Computed example of a mutant assay.
Amino acid sequence: MRIGLAYGDVRGQRDPGVIAEQLQATSGTAWISQGPNLDALTTLAVAGEGPAEVGTAVVPFPQRHPLVLASQALTVQAATGNRLTLGIGVGISRMVDGMYGLPTDRPARRLREYLEVLRPLLRGESVDHHGDTLTAVGSVAVEGAKAPPVLVAALGPAMLRVAGELADGTITWMTGPRTLADHVVPSITKAADTPPRIVAGFAVCVTSDEDAVRARFATDFALAGQVPEYRAMLDREGVDGPADVLLAGDEDTISKRLEQLRDTGITDLMLAPVGTAAEQARTTEFLAMRPGGGRRGDPVGAT
């Protein structure tokens, strides 16, 4: 199981210079979340050398036509020496509708059609698509860029089926171990022709004051617990809110939680250190010492 670190809006980071410095100190996998502030793909393109792999987790695609996203992704590939894993998703429906005024009905159908156009474009092929939810005509070519792997943020059965059939795997966020083991892993694996990559995202804090950290997290992420997409996974897990799936505790506690998650069948962890500056530093140092945690000299596929 590989362990990567998450940066960007999920950690409240808005300074691309600071993120670039952190990325350059990372050797494993560095994931950038796409929020309403920094653009994830641009941040990766200008970050320079560092991680063996960089990934987006995730870029909502409704507001980016596949011709546009293919151009952006292939530009990042050229800029990073083909180290990108492209994570995409349909986006949180309240944001897609409320902020952009875009339709959110039939998300699985929209995802399927988008992938049917995006994957050929990433391979440099021409498309002439006139579908139910999307029209795309053209091609994209960026010198030196290879088609990146594509992962999809998928939680429900229909979305996991599409991800298994048309993508290289899935990325989850705040989805607990029981739901991963009993729902996500078997659902996407059944739909896929080859073993999919399954990246499970969590906030994490190595701390001596677990109760205080959970209380702060419950406040800071209260709205996330009301988002229908996340709420469904929290209910499936049988927990009250985001703080209940936060990885928090001392080094021994976090070690046990990581072993529990490894046993769910996931291939990767995407961990976002949270807490005070001192707690985040303690967390990052602890994770760097874990097998697959991205120490300098470790291959990206270390287990």
Rank of each mutant, 00 (worst) to 15 (best):
V199H: 03
V274M: 08
D209G: 05
R216V: 09
S255M: 08
E237K: 03
L261S: 12
P273N: 12
I188P: 03
L269Q: 06
G225M: 04
G265R: 07
G275H: 11
D182C: 11
L246P: 02
Q260E: 15
R214T: 10
P242T: 06
G238Q: 05
A232V: 10
A212L: 06
P186L: 06
G169E: 10
P157I: 11
M233D: 04
T207W: 08
D220R: 15
L247C: 07
W173V: 12
T267I: 10
R236M: 15
W173C: 07
G201H: 09
G201Y: 12
T170G: 06
A154C: 07
V152P: 00
R262T: 15
R214P: 12
A222M: 08
V185M: 13
P273G: 09
T207P: 04
R262C: 13
L271S: 11
L160P: 04
P228E: 04
E237C: 09
G265M: 06
E165K: 07
A224C: 09
E165L: 04
K256M: 13
R216E: 13
E229I: 13
Q260T: 15
D252N: 14
C205E: 05
L269A: 09
R161I: 00
C205Y: 02
G156D: 12
M270T: 03
F217G: 01
V274R: 01
A192G: 03
M270F: 02
T170F: 04
G156K: 06
A163L: 01
